[in-house]
């Protein structure tokens, strides 16, 4: 993984950002700095704006106000250093395409429109496929894979772009528990190789020991660059008694709270 892009500045810097769609503001006053080497897990309820935040970071949605810089540039430029793993629902799982062809997409860019894939591209694709343990499946069609295998293919595709930052939208949705652990092990390994990771999920169970820092998002973002979720963060994010949620969470990420068992 020595082709990974390095930079000294924060990977993403968001200040006082508001974003949403035609009549509805989804994100309010977001401030977020993603530092090099971090592994951020962002939790929040469905409709809380997690995907919207990702779309803003990826330059797919213009913010209404506030500022955002990706690798010190506009998202539309800086995003070439982001490896994006979309949500399960974003792509067509029935699409007739092989694993290898999906991963090769990571080598596409506006600069190389008329050039065919090179042997260097193929080497990188082999390497990344082997890295996620999917090399032997390279000729399979995407629709022949399990949810977990498919997710590893998308991670390989994102890594083939040599990203500084890996952005994942609900990576463990529609994936069984065993595959879930495998994916987190894989992300942990990737993070140790120097790729910063930013993932969002509505599933509280997946916030595991692999994550370095945790945030909560429900229109407003509660993120302090720490690995603890406080009662207040959960209260204001989910708006329900903390105890109800606490049982689903590994205890290490929860601050001590009264009345818990």
């Amino acid at each position: 993984m020595n082709d990974i892009f390095k930079t000294s500045q924060p990977l993403v810097e968001i200040k006082n950002l508001y974003a949403g769609y035609q009549y509805e503001m989804i994100l309010e006053d977001i401030n977020l700095t993603i530092e090099q080497d971090d592994f951020i897990g962002l939790i929040g309820p469905n409709g809380g704006g997690k995907t919207t935040l990702l779309r803003v970071i990826l330059g797919l949605l213009q913010p209404k106000s506030g500022s955002i810089a990706v690798m010190g540039e506009k998202p539309e430029k800086g995003r070439r250093r982001i490896g994006y793993v979309p949500q399960f629902a974003e792509y067509d799982t029935e699409f007739p395409i092989s694993v290898r062809d999906v991963v090769r997409m990571g080598r596409l860019s506006s600069q190389r429109l008329f050039k065919p894939y090179s042997t260097e591209d193929d080497r990188l694709v082999d390497e990344r496929l082997a890295w996620v343990g999917m090399l032997e499946y390279q000729d399979r069609a995407i629709r022949e894979l399990s949810g977990g295998q498919r997710q590893r293919v998308y991670i390989a595709r994102a890594l083939t772009t040599n990203p500084a930052l890996l952005v994942l939208d609900e990576p463990t949705i529609s994936v069984d528990i065993e595959a879930r652990t495998q994916i987190y092990e894989l992300l942990h390994k990737i993070n140790q190789e120097g790729v910063t990771i930013f993932l969002v999920t509505h599933d509280l169970n997946v916030i595991s020991s692999y994550v370095k820092t945790i945030g909560c998002l429900n229109r407003k973002l509660h993120y302090h660059g720490e690995k603890q979720i406080t009662d207040e963060m959960l209260q204001s994010t989910y708006g329900c008694p903390v105890d109800l949620i606490a049982h689903g969470l590994p205890h290490r990420v929860l601050a001590e709270h009264e009345g818990g068992n």
Partner: peptide, 23 residues
Amino acid sequence: ILFYKELQAVAFDESFARVRNLP
């Protein structure tokens, strides 16, 4: 023939193609 790989990428997963700055 000229844009086969790009067309395939756009047909399969438009968001990813956009993030790669494909037209």
